[in-house]
Write a protein that binds this DNA or RNA. Structure first.
Lengths: 163, 163
DNA sequence: GTTGATATCTTACATTCTAAGATATAAGGT
DNA sequence: ACCTTATATCTTAGAATGTAAGATATCAAC
């Protein structure tokens, strides 16, 4: 395969792999009866410990109104809990409940095992190489997103031509 | 870094990279004034040539009713066109319009350049290695999704796995 | 204590999805 | 040819979830 063809194939493979990841998340969300947005928020809640509603809105790009709904549903499903902030009582701190690990863990196992079965075949050196590549790609993507947002935004056009 | 830590870091890096890809798509969609679902469908339309509405529903996991709306919006925005199937007049074939390449191309350039700036530093051998890894990961993910759906309790609706 | 900033929630409305059924066409048996 | 059943898309009604704007409560500074 030529170098050019290799790069084209690699770009497609990356998009496909990314898509599979999304698809897996959607499937997991469906299985536990919440939507993808709520699962993404739950991921942030788990990763970034007790987090305020406002921060959650900021990292997900949702409005605070939408976040209120997200937290309501996560609470109702038993995956998260609201607490008042100790010193600033306007704030609401959201944290994950034990049910998350118990119910979400098993659902991520097939993916973890799958990734493991692939990765376990590589040497430490190869894994380090892969980690480096992924990090660089993420960084490049972040830069590209910024670039896209920074770029002149042409004439404002309505979302769709009127009904 | 220990091997275990390496693998944990890699898993997180993969999720992050996947997320960046999604975020990029959302940004592109916003920039051209359509939603992410419509852009995903448009990608299929571009890749898989003239495709019937039903097939589009099958590969995306949307209902045919939703696909009708998607095609309506893509048509109104000038990105796609409906045609009657030659021999089976129940079918509607959807194909991309030239405007897609013209208007979408530039928006994907920052990402392409970013990926290129990373990938260009590697040897052919390294690129081949990466392509192999991505392919294996995609395949493992597909298997994991199937596994997850197989374990499902109720009737399962899945994307991409349907024929 | 008053004023303005901040954090979250509420409300009204828009968009897009699903489910069910309508419509049109196809295909096969009689 | 006719009738029945299957298929492909569209239509409709209702649900879910998003935004925007404003209400409410709290904080922070003067």
């Amino acid at each position: 395969m030529s170098r050019d063809a290799l790069i084209v194939a690699l770009n497609r493979a990356m998009r496909d792999a990314s898509g599979q990841g999304v698809l897996y998340s959607q499937t997991v969300a469906e299985r536990i009866g919440i939507n993808s947005t709520d699962l993404e928020c739950l991921d942030f809640i788990v990763l970034r410990g007790p987090i305020s509603a406002g921060e959650l809105a900021a990292v997900t790009g949702l409005t605070t109104g939408a976040i209120t709904g997200v937290i309501d549903r996560l609470e109702r499903a038993g995956f998260a809990r609201r607490d008042r902030h100790g010193s600033d009582r306007r704030k609401v701190l959201v944290q994950a409940m034990p049910a998350v690990k118990r119910r979400l863990g098993p659902l991520f196992q097939p993916m973890e095992r799958g990734a493991m079965s692939v990765l376990s075949k590589y040497s430490d050196k190869e894994l380090a190489f892969l980690l480096d590549v992924f990090s660089r790609l993420s960084e490049a993507a972040a830069t590209a997103i910024t670039e896209l947002n920074t770029r002149a935004k042409g004439p404002t056009k309505s979302r769709y031509t009127r009904k």
